[in-house]
Amino acid sequence: MYEAHLVLHGVAVKKHGTSAAVADLVGLPAERVGALLDAAVAGGRAALANDKYLLTPAGRMIVETQYSRYYSAPRADAGFSAAHERFEVVNNELKQVITDWQTMKVGGRQVANDHSDADYDEKVIDRLAGVHDKVEPILRAFAAVVPRFAYYLEKLEQALEKAEDGAHAWVSDATIDSYHTVWFELHEDILRVLGREREE
């Protein structure tokens, strides 16, 4: 059943996510997701710890074998693959921007960015906004084939706007839905849909 798969997929992407976070990501009503997660736990496909879900080894195997069945359309869609190729190019730029957020050059050497230079930080956030401008049409192309990808556009925009307004944790903090956290989930999602492996 597609919805059961979708919920397992949501847990796979948003590892250690709450029921609400999974519902948000897959775009199903919270109650429906709660029921499907309960069933997944009962069936040994997911485990629950501190209100957060993760897949069991069996759940992981099941969700992975199902992708080719549910995503034959995007896998055969030339527009989707072309958008994915553009995404990988912008992805390299994003990684550089995040690295420049976390580190800076001092006297020719790369050191941790201690965020004591506001001008430098603002310029990096400018570049993050530039990345966002580039990924926006790509995400629309994804969403034209798999509508739930519109979720990422909204989440990325929220993170960017918070960062622009001075809440700098929203750039790359790994414990919240920062720009980088959402971007990585997006990347993971695309690779799963297409059945590809990540390259470092």
Partner: peptide, 9 residues
């Protein structure tokens, strides 16, 4: 890489 970015974060 992911490890570097998240490790620093």
């Amino acid at each position: 890489s992911h490890a570097a970015v998240v490790g620093r974060a």
